[in-house]
Simulated scan of single mutants.
Amino acid sequence: MIGDCGVYVDGRRRPGRVPLDQAAEAARTASGFVWIGLQQPTSEEIAVVAEEFGLPALAVEDAVKAHQRPKLEVYGSVVFMVLKPVRYVDHEEVIDVSEIALFLGRDFVVTVRHGDSDVLGRVRAELDSGDSKPVVDGPTAVVYRAADLVVDGYEEAIVSITEDIDEIESQVFGGDGGEDHAERIYKLKREVAEFRRAVLPLNAPLRQLAEGSIPVVDKAAAPYFRDVHDHALRASDGIEGHDRLLSDVLQADLARVGVRHSKIAVRQNADMRRISAWAAIALVPTAIAGIYGMNFEYMPELTWRFGYFAVVGVVVSLCAGLYWLFRRSGWL
């Protein structure tokens, strides 16, 4: 349940893991902060951490249940924030959304992860390596780097979605074999809608952090949060643009499908008229032949010297007349 528990002083981690019941005291003694990482904890499991650090009950409930909108809430001296990292699975054309809940105090950070995301792992690796001093110190450094990496993931996903939309546009407007792309377009549009629900609500919390008005969060980090906020706004604009573009492409594809169906219907009607015309022409000799095939004894034409030629002439004349009429009306 507890992924890691470490104490950080001056942006560097002290060696080893700290027992949970000693973490708060160790952070205060060292004048640093402790970071406890939890992975999909149950209510009973997180209750131990909540009691140790005085986490607000309502926020703890949200962190356990997950499926929250990105948000930022202040409970006295504790700040609760929810981030929604995304990953675009290109071969399936789906948005994989995970969730991170963060509790910030003056000397602690508690993170709760739901889903498959490497954001917190990358942040911890940066702090644990100690290769470079973070741009901000304390718990604020964890929040800043987590938000920055999440928004960077948004921009990467937008680039991948753009490539798929360009491919769909080429297929729709390039006459790709007369195929119907509506199902693929609608599926991608649904994923973009899921993407929007992860990105748009984050703009308000980032704006609050950029204003430097949140307790516990270092005011010196405000310029860095403004940069993250600007990137998030840019990602929001990109998502809105993709949604409108997919709607336009879907309408264009449906229109092209309708035109193709109309052309097919016209061809089918023309074929039916042609078949009907030839059937009518063929009916004349069939009917006359049927009459003379009844073998009645008293048929005047049977003893007439020119009867055969007269009947053949009538058949040819009627067939030629019908052909001329159908040809004139455009049926042949």
Rank of each mutant, 00 (worst) to 15 (best):
Arg234Val: 08
Val135Glu: 04
Thr111Phe: 00
Val86Gly: 07
Glu155Phe: 04
Ala265Arg: 13
Thr303Ile: 02
Asp271Phe: 07
Val217Cys: 08
Gly178Thr: 10
Ala146Arg: 13
Ser262Arg: 10
Gly3Ile: 11
Thr111Gly: 05
Ala101Phe: 02
Val112His: 04
Ser213Asp: 10
Val64Cys: 02
Pro201Gln: 12
Gly76Glu: 03
Asp62Pro: 04
Glu179Ile: 09
Ala57Val: 05
Asp131His: 10
Val60Cys: 06
Ala182Ile: 12
Ala235Glu: 11
Ser170Pro: 09
Ser117Tyr: 06
Ala182His: 14
Val18Asp: 02
His242Tyr: 06
Lys189Trp: 02
Met81Gln: 08
Thr42Cys: 07
Ser247Phe: 01
Glu183Pro: 03
Ile288His: 06
Met1Gln: 13
Leu102Pro: 06
Asp164Glu: 15
Leu200Cys: 08
Glu61Lys: 08
Val159Gly: 05
Ala255Ser: 13
Phe173Asn: 12
Ser129Ala: 14
Ala63Tyr: 01
Tyr75Ile: 03
Asp243Val: 00
Asn269Lys: 15
Glu25Cys: 05
Pro223Met: 13
Tyr224Val: 05
Ala147Tyr: 15
Tyr88Glu: 09
Trp35Arg: 09
Ala27Asp: 03
Arg17Tyr: 06
Val119Tyr: 11
Gly241His: 00
Pro134Lys: 10
Glu92Thr: 09
Gly307Ser: 02
Trp35His: 10
Glu44Ile: 10
Leu55His: 00
Ala220Leu: 14
Ile214Ala: 07
Gly115Val: 09
Gly238Gln: 15
Asp96Ile: 08
His231Thr: 07
Trp278His: 03
Lys219Gln: 13
Ile185Ser: 04
Val151Cys: 00
Pro205Cys: 06
Asp118Ala: 11
Gly32Tyr: 06
Arg207Met: 15
Asp248His: 08
Met299Ser: 06
Glu126Ala: 12
Val249Asn: 04
Phe108Ala: 02
Thr303Asn: 14
Ser129Cys: 01
Leu283His: 01
Leu188Ser: 01
Gln22Ile: 00
Val143His: 02
Arg14Gln: 15
Asp137Glu: 14
Ile168Met: 14
His229Lys: 05
Phe53Met: 01
Ile288Trp: 04
His229Ile: 00
Ile161Lys: 07
Thr162Trp: 12
Asp248Ser: 12
Pro41Phe: 08
Tyr224Asn: 03
Asp166Trp: 00
Ile214Ser: 03
Ser129Arg: 11
Pro223Thr: 07
Arg327Tyr: 04
Leu209Gly: 14
His231Asn: 11
Ser117Leu: 03
Asp248Asn: 07
Met272Arg: 15
His229Ala: 10
Asn269Met: 15
Ser262Met: 05
Ile95Tyr: 05
Gly54His: 00
Glu73Phe: 03
Trp304Met: 04
Trp35Phe: 04
Asp118Met: 05
Gly174His: 09
Arg124Tyr: 08
Glu297Asp: 12
Ala50Val: 01
Ser236His: 15
Pro300Ala: 07
Arg328Glu: 02
Gly105Tyr: 00
Pro205Gln: 08
Ala265Gly: 07
Arg184Tyr: 07
Ala147Pro: 13
Pro205Phe: 02
Gly313Thr: 08
Ala26Trp: 03
Val257Ser: 11
Leu104Pro: 11
Pro41Arg: 05
Ala63Pro: 06
Ile281Lys: 10
Gly290His: 05
Ile281Leu: 13
Ala255Gln: 09
Ile165Gly: 12
Leu318Asn: 14
Gln251Thr: 09
Leu318Tyr: 15
Ser329Asp: 11
Arg145Cys: 11
Leu127Thr: 00
Val112Glu: 05
Leu332Trp: 01
Pro285Asp: 07
Val257Cys: 05
Arg145His: 14
